[in-house]
Amino acid sequence: MSGWITEALHGDFHTNFRVNKVLFDNQTEHQNLVIYENEIYGRVMALDGVTQITERDEFIYHEMLAHLPILAHGNVRKVLIIGGGDGGMLEEVLKHKDVDKVTMVELDRTVIELSKEHLPMICGDAFDDPRLDLVIKDGCLFMKECCEKYDLIIVDSTDPIGPGEVLFTDNFYTDCKKCLSEDGILVTQNGVPFHQATELKSTMSFFKPIFEETTCYMATIPTYVGGPMAFGWGTDKAGLKDVSVAELQVRFAASEIETDYYTPEVHRAAFALPKYVQELVD
């Protein structure tokens, strides 16, 4: 590979990234994996031709999928991450000193090993943390067999194509629900609604029969073009999405976490949806 890499995730709309240097390009047991360097985004990982994470803006995605639900809940002790082989989500979750255990279920061990080798600026030393229970397994199968309860489940999946497709089904979400504690929260990545409206509508339609409170919240991540990205939100504890800025400020200060995107004010604002997105949720 040299020159430019073209991402065709959105059909008629293609995105091009200049490849300055290829670090890895090969087929794993489950998918094609490429890690390369780009002048704007730094190191970039793509799976089956679709950009997953970049060095320069990963903090937005990971902070919003990790810190927002943890601080909204206020007492998260056990976390389950489905996917997230790059380790960025794991690193953010482990910054919370009150989290006792994080179970991470990743299908492709090669993604983890290559992330530790080529993307240490994203995962840090998270994979060495004693609170981590790493499971190499299909996430859908893990949830079906799971008997534990978690305060927070984060579905850090690829798009609903290839290996990640099963993580966007009603059966999978139902299995997640049975593994949540009474006040537990399920959050999911649901793509860019402007281009991937069906993905968000589908997830919300599956959430509504099984959760008392369902919606999404949003963040703008430059890599994922086409507008802000949506994150699905499901819980039986009504009001968790409405925690006041004042309370969030107290919890955030107590966490002693430094962030580059997340703030209590951004947290509250993330649930204010544009009309076209609210219509998809409804």
Rank of each mutant, 00 (worst) to 15 (best):
L132T: 08
L273H: 04
C216I: 01
F24S: 00
D236W: 03
S157Q: 03
F127W: 15
P209S: 12
D282G: 13
V22N: 10
A272C: 15
E256F: 05
D98T: 01
M104K: 04
H267D: 06
Q31W: 09
M45K: 09
R251H: 04
F24L: 11
F172R: 04
V105L: 12
D108I: 00
H30G: 03
F127V: 09
N20K: 14
P228V: 11
W4E: 12
E258K: 15
L248W: 04
E39A: 10
E148F: 01
I136W: 07
L33V: 14
S205Q: 10
T220K: 08
V187K: 02
V22D: 06
D151H: 01
T54V: 10
N190L: 14
E63C: 14
A72L: 11
V44A: 10
E213I: 03
E7R: 02
H118T: 03
H10R: 09
T103S: 15
V243I: 13
I122R: 00
T214A: 14
N20S: 05
P69S: 02
V50H: 04
H267L: 00
P160M: 06
E55W: 04
K208C: 06
C176L: 11
G227T: 05
Y261N: 01
E106F: 06
V22E: 15
E165M: 08
P274R: 08
T103Q: 05
D260Q: 15
V111I: 12
G232E: 02
N171C: 07
C123E: 07
G42E: 04
T203V: 14
E199I: 14
E7N: 09
V266H: 15
I40S: 08
M64H: 09
I112W: 11
G164F: 03
F59Q: 08
M121K: 06
F142C: 01
P209L: 01
G184A: 00
G162W: 06
G74A: 12
Q278T: 03
I210W: 06
T174V: 03
M121A: 13
V76F: 06
F168E: 03
L280T: 05
Q31P: 07
V22H: 09
E39K: 12
G227H: 00
V277E: 04
E92A: 14
P193E: 06
E7G: 05
M104C: 10
S255H: 12
L80T: 00
H62P: 01
V76L: 05
D128V: 13
I81S: 07
I5G: 08
E39P: 03
V166Y: 00
G139L: 13
I70D: 10
M104L: 12
M218F: 06
L80F: 04
V79N: 08
V225R: 03
K237N: 05
I161V: 15
I5H: 04
